[in-house]
Design a protein around this nucleic acid. Structure first.
Lengths: 168, 168
DNA sequence: TCAACTCGGATATCTTGTGTCCGCGAATCT
DNA sequence: AGATTCGCGGACACAAGATATCCGAGTTGA
């Protein structure tokens, strides 16, 4: 295995959870919220959370304003942001499985011109990955916020935002 | 973040591809096939492939016979082995996403008794993971073998097994 | 009985995620 | 307008997990 290998390795970064929670909170925010406050609210590492928020900013999901009363804000309505977009912004859009084309290796290697179509294994993996992404793309952060309101009570989200602004 | 963390980290090991190819080959085998031969056939690291085959053996998908003419063999019909079982044998059945219960942390932590139901984020991730596994569980190695026969020709699989036995 | 061949687990190496730090830019206050 | 304060952005260590390997235990066949 002298090849650069790099088999398909799906890794779902842990920071995805934090990013999702932040987006839900931001969906009800009306003023920029600094990363420090978000980290304090969730009790997580401020620097590391900032890193993930940067990824979200780079993906165009949230907008950052600098300065004294700066912070983060959603770029568009929460109904127009899917969890898939957040996951892909953090973890990258690379598919879970990458075919190494083992059929073209070894003593009984298949000819290259006969491999225009992906092999069955790659297709199955691709279908599963597609199903996973489709499931994630069907849910928006607005849905998550609604879900939170109906389970934890409608007052939770406004209360969180009040704490972010005033600290009480 | 002094906690042991252990956020949900899904890692799709690269050896899954090798394991799948091996199972497809073994589906047409009639005699035990040693790991060395399988590694040589696919041109991959023999030791590393052996490790994965051990995982498959531990999961009860393939049976190992030691001794001079030993090797691996499927424990049951290829139609009764799904891709999902192979993936879970290699990568483990741990779900892609593990909720850290961030809602119970920080200054506005929710009470523990109000968290009997998983939060919306965990549910969405769980649904996506379930869709992924369902898609993988719908395909058997027999399906993969059939697919290979129809695309690469019906003679490929027998020829591979002849090479494994005789070397020609 | 003996020997060869097989699997199985314990062992190094290395990429990748996890976590942290300092510099740059922008808005506020004087 | 200038200095200051605050927050974002990218560059820097640390650790965990995957990748790759080797040697010992067990078994079959002669």
């Amino acid at each position: 295995m002298s090849e650069s290998s790099s088999i398909g390795v799906v890794k779902l970064s842990g920071g995805v959870e934090w990013a999702l929670h932040c987006c839900v909170v931001l969906s009800a925010a009306t003023e920029p919220t600094p990363a420090t406050k978000l980290a304090e609210l969730h009790d997580v590492s401020p620097s590391y959370l900032a890193k993930h928020l940067q990824s979200l900013s780079g993906a165009g999901l949230i907008h950052s304003t600098q300065g004294k009363s700066g912070g983060y804000l959603l770029t568009r309505s929460a109904a127009d942001i899917t969890v898939l977009q957040i996951v892909e912004a953090i973890d990258g859009a690379t598919p879970a499985f990458r075919c190494t084309e083992v059929r073209q290796r070894g003593p009984l290697a298949a000819s290259a011109e006969s491999c225009t179509i992906p092999c069955g294994i790659a297709r199955v993996m691709g279908d599963a990955d597609r199903a996973w992404r489709e499931s994630l793309g069907a849910v928006t952060v607005a849905d998550l916020a609604d879900e939170l309101s109906s389970t934890a009570g409608p007052a939770t989200l406004p209360r969180v935002n009040r704490w972010l602004q005033t600290g009480t």
